[in-house]
């Protein structure tokens, strides 16, 4: 075991950590916004709205993320002329854009399914009461259904965000220098395989359990009304 290999390369791995967090944050934010719309569409009674969303969710949950990344990153090359014609090629050429796009679409599908469960779990009496007060449509969703659904879905959504954080390691395969990418580069140069990969694993462990800690804190906050004693304390 060569400790100096680890200490010498900690700064580079921390640079990778910044990239990992950046990709995670952008994908989670974009995925969440998409999931809000998709989940509402997936409980629609209109077949033409519901079915395409169902198929989108089924495809992205039923195929490996790495394949999705390859379809977007390498697959877009097949449509290079069409894409440059509409001026989108400069985006699809960049691995960062393709990585974030595929991660966002993937997490949107999983989160939409989680949120749909939350929406269906909202107490019907609350919706009736809101309707009786004259709320409908967007207002009803914004004030009553979505806040309640988010509370119900939060524990499952926490897991999804943790999975996404781990899944960002796949972007190293399309040449991005996240934690895993940096670790692979250093390992192939120094041949200190297990030292570097164990260090990378430890960084991921810290990130994952740190994230879980933050999300549990948020969960306590948004469900405080169910636990009045803890709130008073």
């Amino acid at each position: 075991m060569d400790i100096s290999v680890i200490t010498n390369n900690i700064p580079k791995l921390l640079d990778g950590t910044v990239i990992t967090l950046e990709i995670t944050a952008i994908s989670v934010a974009a995925g969440f916004v998409m999931a809000l719309f998709l989940s509402i569409m997936s409980v629609s009674k209109n077949n033409f709205i519901r079915m395409p969303v169902k198929w989108f969710i089924f495809y992205f949950r039923g195929t490996p993320l790495l394949v999705q990344i390859f379809i977007i990153y390498y697959g877009s090359g097949q449509f290079q002329s069409a894409l440059s014609h509409v001026g989108l090629w400069y985006l699809f050429r960049k691995p960062f854009f393709c990585a974030v796009l595929s991660l966002a679409l993937n997490t949107a599908a999983y989160s939409a399914e989680i949120l749909r469960g939350g929406i269906e779990g909202v107490d019907f009496g609350e919706i009736e009461a809101a309707r009786a007060c004259g709320m409908s449509g967007f207002l009803l969703y914004r004030r009553i259904i979505m806040p309640a659904a988010l509370r119900i879905a939060w524990p499952a959504y926490t897991n999804e965000v943790v999975f996404l954080l781990q899944a960002t390691s796949l972007v190293s395969i399309i040449t991005l220098m996240d934690i895993t990418g940096v670790a692979r580069l250093i390992a192939s140069r120094t041949f200190a395989f297990y030292e570097i990969f164990i260090t990378a694993a430890v960084i991921y462990l810290v990130l994952v359990y740190g994230l879980l800690f933050v999300f549990k804190k948020i969960e306590k906050k948004i469900t405080a009304h169910l636990n009045p004693e803890a709130m008073a304390a």
Binding site: T168, T180, F193, Y194, A200, A201, L205, V208
Partner: peptide, 21 residues
């Protein structure tokens, strides 16, 4: 540990790391 580390890192650790270890 296993649930906190990405699969890809575990795979690289075993495939490249275990023999050198």
């Amino acid at each position: 540990v296993m649930r906190g580390v990405p699969e890809l890192v575990s795979i690289l650790l075993v495939y490249y790391g275990a023999p050198t270890l």
